[in-house]
């Protein structure tokens, strides 16, 4: 095994440079709740860890004209304690709250959840439903990408060597908007999603759905953005018929695996039911907002 080196730079530029110049396997260290476990269980043997928590910009949550920017090193507990963000994006918070124990959330970040690229990552369907964008810094400068463009297969992202996610940008919220994330697990706490469903929608003054996004976790190699499921809601008042159509579209989009947590058939069925429930909750929140 090569020697491990630990670096904790205080600027984005220095972090990018360290990662871009690394010879062997290099990893960003955010909360470490995936990285340290993977090292401990010999899944990975990196030669360089770049701790990004000492970079002040990455620790900030800022409101920008109704939009929110959340730094990549903000921990789940810090986000859960931010009242303004919780009010704006309750569905994202639903997902964040499900990431492990209080101890895990004291360290874990959404960016780590996204970049670990697990199809069952709990914040990711909610982030995709929210229409969040990531800002990425790399050796060739800064770029933006929608969250759904980051994971490409289990454990793999579209980030190039030396690139790091620096923040999430959540768009300004129109009135009468609501979002929700639900996960189905055999155990209430501390378990991995069999299926996760995130729904985000906006209503007009008359209660008709004008826009919607639906994302599903743990039913395909990556979290899925399901356009057909969203289209089932748009232009309707989100009644029983629309919800039925949404559930069918959600089930139809699934390409799950069989494992100890559930069979393919089971996941396909549960995905539809769960998407329907998440849509009802998002609707309730949109009506109250």
């Amino acid at each position: 095994m090569g020697e491990l080196r630990y670096e904790a730079p205080d600027t984005i530029e220095a972090a990018v440079k360290l990662l871009a110049r690394a010879n062997g396997a290099a990893r960003v260290l955010a909360g470490g709740t995936d990285v340290i476990v993977q090292m401990e269980t010999d899944l990975i043997e990196p030669e360089l860890l770049v701790d990004i928590k000492k970079i002040p910009q990455l620790r900030e949550i800022t409101a920008e004209r109704g939009a929110y920017r959340v730094g990549a090193a903000v921990s789940c507990m810090e986000l859960i304690e931010h009242e303004g963000f919780c009010r704006a994006w309750p569905g994202v918070i639903d997902g964040v709250k499900l990431i492990g124990s209080i101890q895990v959330k004291g360290r874990a970040t959404m960016a780590g959840n996204l970049c670990n690229a697990s199809p069952a990552a709990d914040s990711v369907p909610a982030l995709i439903a929210a229409g969040a964008q990531v800002t990425i810094a790399g050796p060739n400068g800064v770029r933006q990408a929608p969250v759904e463009a980051i994971p490409v297969s289990p454990g793999k992202t579209s980030l190039a060597k030396g690139e790091i996610v620096t923040s999430f940008l959540f768009p300004a919220r129109p009135p009468r908007s609501g979002d929700a994330y639900l996960r189905f697990t055999p155990r209430t706490e501390m378990d991995i999603a069999v299926v996760g469903a995130g729904v985000n929608l906006t209503l007009d003054a008359g209660g008709t759905c004008t826009s919607a996004r639906v994302a599903l976790g743990a039913v395909a190699p990556t979290v899925l953005l399901v356009k057909e499921a969203a289209e089932a809601l748009i232009g309707t008042r989100v009644g029983e018929a629309a919800l039925d159509k949404l559930a069918k579209a959600a089930s139809a989009a699934c390409r799950p695996i069989d494992d100890k947590r559930g069979t393919k058939e089971y996941r396909i069925k549960v995905a539809g039911v769960l998407a329907g429930r998440a849509a009802r909750q998002a609707l309730e929140r949109a009506r109250q907002s």
């Binding site: 470490g32 124990s101 004291g106």
Partner: peptide, 26 residues
């Protein structure tokens, strides 16, 4: 040693964390 049991719970800058999921260098 993998964040599952909480036996190693400590406070780090006022936050509850699992000490097995924190590098000493941090």
């Amino acid at each position: 040693a993998t964040g599952d049991c909480g036996a190693c719970s400590v406070m780090l800058d006022g936050r509850l964390v699992d000490a097995c999921l924190v590098l000493a260098a941090e």
